[in-house]
Write a protein that binds this DNA or RNA. Structure first.
Lengths: 218, 218
DNA sequence: GGAATAGTGTCTCTAAGACAATATGGA
DNA sequence: TCCATATTGTCTTAGAGACACTATTCC
């Protein structure tokens, strides 16, 4: 029917979260060849009978690794080529998920993104592309808010931006801008005494529309 | 070996250009089933022996429809599902190309994007996603410059932005911003008498790095 | 010279950056 | 009370928007 062989097709999910002030990626140790014993991104095949599209498949993979609530999820891009998988010509559809740490089960393998090297297949590259995407988004969207637990203080959110972009925003400009564009909304309960020292801070959460874009820096 | 059937995998290219002041998409009439006789995006299978990745395949498709010089080319996203192709579960990797009109051969089918409806497969959706991507890019990058012939005047470029985004930029702010960020560079030869009326304008072209991003509107 | 378009100057206003001043909760 | 952090206020400055004014080309 078709003149050309169909490549191997998979989905892979880059699950990013914030732990100990640094961006981490969730990895799993492969239990099968190829690359058995090596760290890799969670992923798998499309289940053509049950997945209505590739995003469904990626959501299924994600759900097996983290609670799928409060999650920012998007397509990253495809990676393809004859050599990335020793079994033959392959294509993977990579997805990016931003998850607060507490949604990730105990015992999951979280690796600082800077240390995510030597992974199976071309997963080093995929992680790199995901981190790059998140970095870019952090200058024109509230994406870093998806990495932390809700509700959060503006200080928490500022720290998330700092961890992603490498520079801490000016507190005054940050507050002004974030609140002006409505990128976060006040949570019902107001804070009081979280970390036990200093004045308590007001609590916020992402609005129902989730991560928002706006066109300026702070 | 694999428990799950491999979906049909294709690449499709959304080739956008600017003609008569409006954004157009290049379409072809399908000569085979499914959808024989219907307009569709140019596309095809991956040639696993010659294409080093999906982008190679998309470039090959593009080269068969337009001269592949001075072209802005990027991955758009994947589209997938069991029903988009009557032959079975399928995935397409969609690419976006921005091409100046004169690089497109005579006789090609250019359709205003607003009229690109009733296309084969789910190509309506793909065109929509491509146009949306370009619209977004036009507020923080020089992408519309890739739609017009080089060298161009700032008036030409302003018209390209207007055609994509729907609003004409303020001439003064536009000039200031575009030149300040170096999004275009002066072409060697200075203009003089193109359209035969009014003062001649200076000519510019995209810098070697191609389309640039910058983080403000004008 | 006049029409038409290109390019410059400048004023206003918004918003970012910096930082001082004040408020509030916990020890 | 003091300390630490949160929040507000204000001054400065860069840059966008608007628009008037000058420059250059073709007729």
């Amino acid at each position: 029917m078709e003149k050309y062989q169909r490549p191997i097709l998979t989905v892979d999910v880059v699950i990013l979260t914030l732990t100990k002030g640094a961006l981490h990626v969730l990895l799993t140790e492969r239990d099968k060849e190829p690359f058995a014993g090596t760290l890799a991104l969670p992923g798998g095949y499309l289940h053509v009978e049950e997945d209505m599209d590739a995003e469904d498949a990626a959501t299924r993979v994600l759900a097996s690794k983290a609670n799928a609530r409060n999650i920012h999820f998007e397509q990253l891009r495809s990676f393809s080529g004859p050599y990335r998988d020793p079994r033959g010509y392959s294509v993977t559809l990579a997805y990016l998920a931003l998850v607060p740490e507490h949604e990730i089960p105990e015992g999951a393998r979280l690796v600082p993104v800077a240390d995510a090297k030597g992974l199976a297949f071309d997963h080093d590259r995929i992680v790199e592309a995901a981190v790059e995407r998140l970095r870019r988004k952090s200058v024109y969207s509230s994406a870093p808010a998806a990495l932390i637990a809700s509700p959060f203080t503006l200080a928490d959110l500022s720290n998330a931006f700092a961890a992603v972009s490498g520079v801490a925003p000016d507190p005054s400009s940050f507050r002004r801008k974030i609140l002006a564009v409505g990128a976060v909304v006040p949570s019902g309960e107001s804070s009081r005494g979280g970390r036990g020292i200093g004045r308590g801070a007001a609590l916020y959460r992402l609005p129902d529309c989730g991560v928002m874009t706006f066109n300026r820096t702070f």
